[in-house]
Simulated assay, not measured.
Amino acid sequence: MADQPQDKFASVPPRNDTGANRVQRAFPEPGVPLIHQINGLGLWTLYIKEVRRFFKVQTQTIWAPAVTTLLYLMIFTLALGGGNRMVLGVSFAAFVAPGLIAMGMMNNAFANSSFNFLAGKIQGTIIDYLMPPFSEIELMLALIGAAVTRAVLVGLALAGAIMLWPGVHLAAPHPWAIVWFGLMGSVMLAFIGLLTSLWAEKFDHNAAVTNFVITPLTMLSGTFYVIDNLAPAFQTASRLNPFFYVISGFRFGFLGRSDIGDTNLHVLQGAIGLGLLNLVLGIATYVLLRSGWKLKS
């Protein structure tokens, strides 16, 4: 019996070349992003785009807060005894000036980041944030970085304007506190603003957070007073306010004194606590961005 003819291609191994016989690579399912490395160029491009957005109207976003802060300084200084009142061993104007700078930085960081996704939802341009090949970390870093950049520019403008006020001298005995509390306060409000823009569906929602959360916490943070003058119950409430640690720690960098505690260790503990709070806010923001909450149908 004759042997059956063998397939002449049975012993030929498959070729792994660029032709038709090339082994196909596995692709992810449609809609599943596949990013192997950091998209540095895209992150930088989005960051610059957000910076240019607020810088085009710098009269409103940077210089207007400086004028508003000078009005605050003038009104409260004249209303509370002029230049004769002493607080923490310095004049009232010198006491309140660092708090006003920190307050302006935080408010503008919130204003910048709370506009991003909300404007996209209302104008129908939210796809501009969702379609590019960004990971959630890259998207978050670009938006938070732009908000902090605006806060720093506002802080510099405020410092320059306040230095024009008679009797105010901005020394820096503790530069680390100025940098740390200034940046951490700006990052904290940038995260809160980004969370607000995720949640909000119209500008009224954003305004509600500003009017009923941000403004009260800012005004009750010890910007214009020392909490030791408050009743014990209100002192406890003030110490539960994270804005208080930003204002007092930032002031410590300029004056070398703070109402956080009697020693520098208390200020350091406040700095660590603020950093941990920002870490929690960052994780929460990342989780919500990754889930597509109120961004993807």
Rank of each mutant, 00 (worst) to 15 (best):
D128W: 07
M106A: 08
L276N: 04
P173H: 05
L288Y: 11
R251E: 09
A94G: 00
F250K: 13
A10N: 06
Q58L: 12
L158W: 06
L288P: 01
L295E: 04
A171Y: 09
S135C: 04
I137S: 08
L195P: 02
T68C: 09
G40L: 14
G185H: 11
P242S: 09
G124C: 07
T196W: 01
V280P: 02
W165S: 05
L156C: 10
L143N: 13
N229Y: 10
F224S: 06
V280L: 15
V23L: 11
I38W: 12
M219A: 15
S238A: 15
R22C: 02
L277V: 01
M86I: 15
Q123S: 06
F234P: 00
W44C: 03
P175G: 01
S113I: 01
T61A: 12
A109F: 04
L143I: 09
N264D: 11
A231P: 03
T77S: 14
P132R: 11
S113W: 03
M219Q: 13
V152E: 02
L130Y: 01
I178Y: 02
A109I: 05
N278S: 05
S238N: 12
T77I: 07
N84I: 00
E138H: 07
A151I: 04
L279Y: 14
I38V: 09
L217H: 11
F76C: 05
A26N: 09
A64G: 00
V179Y: 01
I144R: 11
A200K: 03
I48T: 03
L281C: 06
L274W: 05
L70W: 09
M1S: 10
L230S: 10
T69D: 09
G120Q: 01
I283Y: 14
R251A: 08
E138M: 06
W176K: 03
P232N: 14
W44G: 04
I48G: 00
L73S: 06
M86D: 12
S248H: 08
D3F: 07
I35C: 02
F224G: 05
G275V: 01
L100V: 03
I62Y: 07
G83I: 00
M74V: 00
H266Q: 10
F115P: 00
P33G: 10
G82L: 10
G282S: 13
T218N: 15
M163V: 02
L198H: 01
L217F: 15
S291G: 09
